[in-house]
């Protein structure tokens, strides 16, 4: 049997670590967010770092929830209903990773959007954010298209992502965000 006392002891003290694979619902997202928020309150003393991690976490998970909501394919070979979510403490900060299957036909527009965000300076990110904020149309999902922009503004670095096509109509989208401690 694995010795969990050893594992617990050897994990970095005052760290956070969670990995989840499975179906997401907004109820589950709430539970994850609350659990991690409690943990952050205990281990992260800097208010700006704490709020950045919390903010990125919420936007990432709600994005995940919205995307999964919008997909209607099912592929048993790839367990396509399951998403992957991970958060852990790394040297000098935190890392959040989300991964999910999306329709291949959605890849191009999503890629273009992330690339556009990655090409913008700090000032232009704010301009773009305000432009979308003031655009009266809400998209059908609550986020209003601000999620990735907000994440990019919070972390102050380019969004690290990849798309892997696994079948003609199914691709795997991975997003990895690093939040440096203030």
């Amino acid at each position: 049997m694995l010795n969990f006392l050893d594992i617990h002891k050897h994990m970095v003290p005052n760290s956070i670590s969670m990995i989840f694979k499975g179906s997401v619902t907004f109820e589950l997202i709430d539970s994850i967010v609350m659990a991690i928020n409690d943990r952050l309150d205990r281990i992260e003393g800097n208010i700006n770092t704490r709020k950045k991690v919390f903010g990125v976490l919420i936007e990432c998970l709600q994005n995940l929830g919205n995307h999964v909501d919008g997909e209607n394919f099912q592929d048993n070979e790839y367990d396509s209903n399951a998403v992957l979510f991970m958060i852990d403490s790394i040297d000098g900060g935190y890392r959040i990773l989300t991964a999910n299957f999306i329709s291949t036909e959605k890849v191009e527009s999503l890629k273009e959007w992330i690339e556009e965000i990655n090409s913008l300076s700090k000032e232009d990110l704010r301009k773009k954010y305000n432009e979308i904020l003031q655009n009266n149309s809400f998209n059908t999902k609550g986020g209003g298209g601000l999620g990735f922009l907000d994440i990019a503004m919070k972390v102050g670095q380019k969004l690290d992502y990849s798309f892997q096509q696994v079948k003609e109509n199914i691709s795997f989208f991975t997003l990895q965000i690093t939040i440096n401690k203030a």
Partner: peptide, 12 residues
Amino acid sequence: KYFNTSSAKSLL
């Protein structure tokens, strides 16, 4: 304490 992007438009 915090507001998300989904709240940002309604707040505006």
